[in-house]
Design a protein around this nucleic acid. Structure first.
Lengths: 225, 225
DNA sequence: GATTCTCTGCATAAATTCTTCACATATTTA
DNA sequence: TAAATATGTGAAGAATTTATGCAGAGAATC
């Protein structure tokens, strides 16, 4: 059973979160301050942290950073309204996702599960038909030989391998890899896709069979056939 | 069974610490002054020292330093209130962690165990292709010849050798080597990396093959190929 | 207090990566 | 089939990131 650490200074919010998440099988720990949460983490492993941004004493952003210095536990920030600035800050401070209040049950569950699914490759290592991607060392190997990638290429490769068979629009790729407030249009993505394909091909990997163009939509990585 | 050396001029505090720590299996030695503590250490090995900062005669900081000159036993400082300055000083003087009074049982235990856990992984000696790093003597040898490193350089070297193949961002390097809340520019890291590389090269070690730049991310030590 | 070593930060050079554009090619639609 | 829309490609300048030299501040040592 997965353990979630819920951190919010409002007890009602904690209860609400727990009300949604407990019935579907999550073990919920509630803490009313960031300090208590950090404190708890020092002795108990958890699978995911839901962290409110607005809290007295230590706010969510500082807490997020603090936690990141010590643990890799994924963090979802809770923001009042969709304050873009908060969201961006949160993601820059090490958060994995955000949920803006008010949220509905469906969204909450979806995001929690998405982050956990992502986390499942917690070792940071993914392999696929001879390809081996290691997020710790930032390496991509094909049959043991390293393929040197640029940051953007590595980000794309990681995104594709962790979300196989999912089609990404160019816009989605940008927000996922570039960040949440970048404006690049034109053929920029295409260029990077091309470069990535070329590097894979040059290394002997049949990229054309896997990194596919979905006409009119975007790109996807074709996983298990 | 682990032995803890508790040092505080207030007997009540010693009793309190012991009250919390003895029941969970630690053997507690109480000393009411730094001198007594050092004296005790000269003939008895201990696993961890809890050291009060405010003491008559010799204060905790001086004691910490003194102890560090002779032993590597981990030290947790006890500070009255969370006086930032004390904390920073303590960490700079060789302490491994700090606990501010008042503390509760849970926090105390957590920090003690965290430090001991950390300690367990530190045999203190690492070798790598002719390099030999000794954390006890703070020495780095290459083929038996010493390479003189500054503290920062040694810290980086240790971090890299104990975390081979892992990429560290500059930010991460700062928090790991410099300490908890230090503000240094990013380019400073580069300078230290350069100096470290140069010293390794000058000693004959092919640093360029191992201390690698991960473009757009940070630095890493390339271990086994 | 002087000296030496260390740390930090800047300016500039060098290296690498990113973006863009024009146009070719491909696919869909009319 | 022609027109319209979308993707692929090559090349080059722009932008970003890192390397390097240097100098002053800061610490430690004598």
């Amino acid at each position: 059973m997965k353990t979630l650490l819920l951190v919010d200074d409002e007890p009602m919010m904690l209860d609400l979160l727990s009300l949604y998440l407990s019935p579907i099988g999550y073990h919920c720990i509630k803490k009313e301050s960031a300090l208590e949460a950090i404190h708890y983490l020092e002795t108990h492993p958890v699978n995911l942290i839901l962290l409110d941004i607005m809290m007295p004493e230590m706010n969510g952003l500082d807490a997020c950073e603090k936690i990141r210095q010590m643990w890799d536990t994924p963090i979802i920030m809770l923001t009042a309204m969709s304050e873009k600035s908060d969201i961006v800050k949160g993601l820059n401070h090490g958060a994995d996702d955000y949920i803006s209040k008010p949220f509905d049950e469906e969204e909450l569950i979806a995001r929690v599960e998405a982050v956990l699914r992502r986390q499942k490759n917690e070792s940071g290592k993914i392999s696929f038909r001879g390809l081996f991607l290691d997020q710790n060392s930032y390496e991509l190997l094909y049959n043991g030989v390293e393929i040197l990638l640029t940051p953007k290429e590595f980000g794309m490769m990681r995104l594709f391998l962790t979300n196989q068979n999912k089609v990404f629009t160019r816009e989605h790729l940008i927000t996922s890899i570039w960040g949440y407030e970048v404006s690049t249009e034109d053929r920029t993505i295409d260029s990077h896709v091309r470069n990535l394909r070329e590097k894979l091909r040059k290394a002997g990997f049949p990229a054309d069979n896997y990194l596919l163009t979905v006409w009119g939509v975007g790109y996807k990585w074709a996983g298990k056939s």
